[in-house]
Design a protein around this nucleic acid. Structure first.
Length: 501
RNA sequence: CGGGGUGUAGCGCAGUCUGGCUAGCGCACCUGGUUUGGGACCAGGGGGUCGAAGGUUCGAAUCCUUUCACCCCGACCA
């Protein structure tokens, strides 16, 4: 019987499958607070690993961490017109600072604030305010700051990790003396994100620029990395914004230049969030549960002792402990192999499925028979069948196996994207590409469509009924000419279009 | 905020139309036993103010009114 670990399967009900993965892998669950999730230890460990790698990359590129307030005075948010409009509708507002017993025995807010405070949806305005104080001379530039924090956006519809009212992220904010330097920073951080996505998450991404309609409110240019999920929808996995002088002018971030004159700084901001966990899930996981790329897995190897009789216990446990110690001394990706012994009181099969669902890359089963032969029973998360291997060989090869799995996941994800990316030259073809054959129960369809287009309201209007959006115009493209499939106008821009999260 | 739907044990549900024994089932959980290189089997057991408030009635999970929450589809979005 081909029983899958997860029900429904991806092809039966993709969103349902996603929810089950999050649940079965014990990553997170809904909280009593609407739209806010509880990230459980296994999910948080994954996020911590992502943080550690990214943090190192930010520091290597000359950024420093700092922390700014959770609350932003309402007036700050009002300074940049587009910014206000972009975020106003989804802000949580603090209007009181105290609770008093009410007439019905409950508590009622009291002590109204003179100026309401907004729970940060992003921190451009408050960080910009501080930048204005810190920057006086061109010698104070560039200023390159990052903060790890939570933000709140009061979303209408939420899904664990992909869109929650509160989420964890990092936001980088930099100020530069010249436009060129700020543009370089914007591109550099997009490269950092792409490197992280591909080399650590094993998730291939397309780097590109957002169209005007998809741009960050207040930005002159937004760059993003876009990944294809297994249902062929696009997920924006990270953004890097060139803010021009919009925020510096709104917030008076100016400096005295080398010539003695006064100039406004050029600023950037960039961020990735816990959404990356969702991206990771939808890129690699299968119908048996979570699949983790080894480089980010909280644990690489789980050792499951097989004990049939009580009198075997001591010997088996001792062997497992020594094996764990030996494996822990092996290096993988610049760190120790993370290994643990699962001695929980579960039946063998149950224990095995527990770790499959949680995506532990390698399972080792160790029983008296294996001990006698000094061999191990090895289960790889990326292969359906387990196999025996001498202990010595496994210890020697474990690092290599993990790296092979890491690469395998990337290759598989890249193949999915390549196979489902199509160059499309007519609107008719475009429409059929994005229309399910069975409308009542739409099958997985579509993908990335590469098309010549002109970024204009007319184009956007034609996309609306198809529920397709321009994802980006890829940064590495040849400047060839073509005809916009929407408007028929000549153009040199080719974009990627897809349904998206 | 518009349109649709659902609230019954930790999870998934039946029962509601047509009011009537002590509110059920599967999974999970606990205990005992038999098993054990694989998501076991048998027996026993614990757990519910049927989303909330009010009403109708001899009697309400079921009918009526009000209300709250959540889910799906839109609009909005990392």
């Amino acid at each position: 019987m081909a029983k899958t670990g997860i029900s429904p399967t991806r092809s039966e009900d993709y969103p349902g499958w996603y929810q089950q993965i999050v649940r079965s892998a014990d990553l997170a669950e809904n909280s009593p607070v609407r739209g806010c999730m509880v990230i459980k230890p296994w999910g948080y460990a994954l996020w911590e690993n992502m943080q550690a790698v990214l943090d190192e990359m930010f520091k290597e590129t000359g950024h420093e961490n700092a922390y700014f307030p959770l609350f932003i005075p309402k007036s700050f948010l009002e300074k940049e017109a587009e910014h206000v409009e972009g975020f106003a509708k989804e802000c949580a507002v603090v209007t009181h600072h105290r609770l008093e017993p009410g007439p019905d025995g409950g508590l009622v807010p009291a002590g109204e604030l003179e100026e309401p405070l907004i729970v940060r949806p992003t921190s451009e305005t408050i960080i910009g305010h501080m930048f204005a104080k810190w920057i006086e001379s061109y010698r104070d530039l560039p200023l390159k700051i990052n903060q790890w924090c939570n933000v709140v956006r009061w979303e209408m519809r939420v899904r664990l990790f992909l869109r929650t009212a509160e989420f964890l992220w990092q936001e980088g904010h930099t100020a530069h003396a010249t436009k060129e330097e700020a543009l370089d920073e914007t591109r550099l951080m997009l490269d950092v994100y792409a490197k992280f996505a591909e080399e650590y998450m094993a998730m291939p991404v397309v780097k590109g620029e957002k169209t005007e309609g998809e741009r960050f409110p207040g930005a002159d240019m937004t760059l993003s990395i876009e990944a294809m999920m297994q249902d062929r929808k696009a997920l924006q996995a990270g953004t890097s914004h060139f803010l021009g002088q919009n925020f510096s002018k709104a917030q008076d971030i100016k400096f005295q230049n080398a010539e003695g004159g006064e100039s406004y700084a050029w600023t950037t901001s960039w961020g990735v969030s816990t959404r990356l966990v969702g991206a990771l899930i939808m890129t690699h996981s299968d119908d048996d549960g979570l699949v983790l790329p080894p480089r980010l897995a909280p644990k690489h190897v789980v050792i499951c002792p097989v004990i049939r009789k009580e009198e075997e216990r001591a010997e088996v446990m001792e062997y497992c402990a020594s094996l764990a110690k030996e494996l822990g001394g092996v290096q993988y990706d610049g760190k120790r192999v993370a290994v643990f012994v699962d001695d929980s009181d579960k039946r063998g099969g149950e224990k095995k499925w527990f770790h499959i669902k949680r995506g532990v890359p390698i399972r080792l089963e160790v029983g008296p028979r294996d001990i006698k032969n000094d061999s191990l029973f090895v289960g790889r998360r990326d292969q359906p069948k387990s196999f025996g291997m001498p202990r010595v060989e496994f210890v020697e090869r474990v690092s290599e196996i993990l790296e092979e799995m890491q690469q395998g996941l990337f290759d598989k994800a890249l193949k999915l994207r390549v196979d489902n990316t199509q160059q499309i030259d007519s609107f008719e073809e475009f429409k059929s590409f994005f229309t399910a054959k069975n409308e009542a129960k739409p099958e997985v369809h579509g993908g990335f469509a590469e098309c010549y287009f002109v970024d204009c309201p007319e184009t956007d209007a034609m996309l609306v009924p198809l529920k397709v959006t321009p994802r980006c115009t890829p940064v590495d493209q040849d400047a060839e000419s073509g005809i916009c499939i929407f408007t028929g106008k000549p153009t040199q821009t080719r974009g990627i279009f897809a349904k998206s999260y």
